[in-house]
Design a protein around this nucleic acid. Structure first.
Lengths: 331, 331
DNA sequence: CTGTTAGCGCCTTCAC
DNA sequence: GTGAAGGCGCTAACAG
């Protein structure tokens, strides 16, 4: 693989000149510029990133740590973040933590070793040792989606209260009184915020305040199914179910189908925080609060780049959109 | 950030000794070993990856280029590939090409600059200039999911013929004769293979061979919807529809619902190449050929690592599983 | 505007 | 088993 020395030799200039031309420094004559560029093209020269990173003490690489890339929310977010970063000349290294603190720490070590210029973090739970170390260092960090206690990095996330309000309004418009709410873990800020917003708003929207109708899972399908079964076991028969995220809605629906059968299930309307295209074809169709995952990813990258460039970044809540697929709706 | 020099000084040994200890060389005394390790821990030492890469002329980084990370198939594949790579001490850089050759080339440049040790590639279309250059170099490469003309790198992908055969058997068992098939682009090997397997096998499974029932989209929902409409416009009224991938099934279903209404749509059974959990709750439930995306990702990484280590790798077709959700089925 | 050179942090050979 | 030193490819500082 050709080095800058080869390029310089072929162009008949010194390495310094070649370096200046290739990194776009203005201090170069048109003559050497064209000769260096030509030589580089002929040799198929591609700069050695590690060498450049070593010398410049920066890598132009951002680390993105998500809890589970298979979650559509995160895969859309990651996609958008990568696009935004590349538009600014940065590369993104993506890693999963699998909702596991030990894996998260292993990944953070890799990131540290790679000397990433900044970290986009969607935290799993409480602070881990590696994370503490990173926070103590001067590595620029922004939080995505979930906040974490004792960390004051800027947060880019969904407007959970706003999203729940949209769902509540829809429930009221549809005339639902007996609504089951399946939340997520209180230890996740997203779980807590959605839960709190629901409890705070239900009465004003004409929804029964019996807490027998409220339970929580773990934001995964199985946990949500169990929560739904607990509600049914208490003798409640809701006319609508509100799932606090996509997997939760899936689990709740599975529980309802298995316990009550498809026919009875079709009498229950589901609303979901997190939208899925297939909702249009369920019976009845499922309406949903749609997260703007791409915008969260882009805003997070912009904030992080501001931090990297010595500026400041402020937390941002990205608005949700309500997708109404109920019978009477225009769509 | 602490360097190996700091560690050596604190441990009272030479940098060479520190390096040997930290990289697990056996030629170290227990004494210096423990002192170096202690010093490293106290300093929170994490080796500088770029410096190490520069010196060793390898990075322990693999590049993974997929056409669209938002596609669940690829997000699962990427997740598994990353896990497998990490288990072997490698880091994965993930990038999207957005089904766009120019973006793919931009990404390949970044990969080349990062001096990745190997490339996992899910090609979009024909060879691009950058890809040609990479193939000409001695960079180890494996193909994922799709093959590409004129490239003889090992391919790790779905057993398309086997998957189609599973669907055909199911269609026969369900007694369907008038089956619509919505394929993907012939320019993708996956599209061509599924299409060919369907045409070759339909007659033997008692399915009508009228080509008015066959059309192709672009593996995206909109294109598939248009293909479905073309079939309906020809006056055909299938009792079952076979979508050649997940988005295709989505588009076909949308077209059927919009054109015929929900009631008539519920008389048509859908089968899909690519499984989605929500299929269980459609009416009627959708059966599907489930790709083993995680295994494809793992096998690809294993093959690539074999190549990197100077061994050989052979193409592999990963078996599919049929998920039968039809009325009479046990599930 | 250009050439020369030091040195980023690490590994590895070469002596001892 | 250990210390000393060179050099990977690049950029930036310094002369000219």
């Amino acid at each position: 693989m050709a080095t800058i020395k080869d390029v310089a030799a072929r162009a008949g200039v010194a390495v310094g000149t070649a370096s200046r031309v290739l990194s776009g420094s203005p201090q170069t004559s048109p003559d050497s510029r064209s000769r260096v560029l030509a030589a580089a093209a002929e040799l198929g020269y591609i700069a050695n990133g590690p060498a450049r990173s070593l010398r410049r003490a920066r890598t132009d690489v951002l680390g993105l740590l998500v809890s589970d890339i298979r979650n559509p929310f995160f895969s859309e977010l990651a996609h958008a973040a990568e696009q935004e970063a590349r538009a600014h000349g940065y590369t993104v290294i993506l890693a999963n933590a699998n909702e596991d603190a030990a894996q998260a720490d292993a990944v953070l070590d890799v990131f540290a070793s790679q000397r990433i210029d900044g970290l986009l973090l969607s935290p799993q739970g409480p602070k881990t040792p590696r994370l503490e170390a990173l926070l103590a260092s001067d590595l620029p960090i922004v939080l995505l989606n979930r906040s974490i206690e004792g960390v004051d990095a800027p947060l880019y996330g969904t407007d959970n209260a706003g999203g729940v309000a949209q769902a509540l309004k829809w429930l009221q418009r549809r005339g639902h009184r007996d609504v089951a709410f399946i939340g997520g873990p209180e230890t996740f800020s997203t779980g807590a915020e959605r839960h709190d917003a629901y409890l705070a708003g239900r009465e004003a929207h004409g929804i029964c305040t019996d807490d027998a109708l409220v339970d929580a899972g773990d934001f995964l399908a199985d946990g949500a199914a169990e929560a739904m079964l607990r509600i049914l076991d208490r003798g409640a028969l809701p006319t609508a179910v509100f799932g606090a995220n996509g997997q939760t809605t899936l689990g709740a629906m599975r529980a309802v189908h298995e316990r009550l059968g498809a026919e009875a299930a079709s009498l229950i309307e589901f609303v979901s925080f997190d939208d899925v295209e297939w909702f249009a074809f369920m019976s009845p169709p499922v309406s949903a609060v749609k997260n703007d995952a791409p915008e969260i990813g882009r805003a997070g990258v912009r904030g992080l780049l501001a931090l990297i460039n010595g500026g400041t970044a402020t937390s941002q809540r990205i608005a949700t959109t309500f997708i109404d697929r109920s019978a009477g709706s225009a769509a």
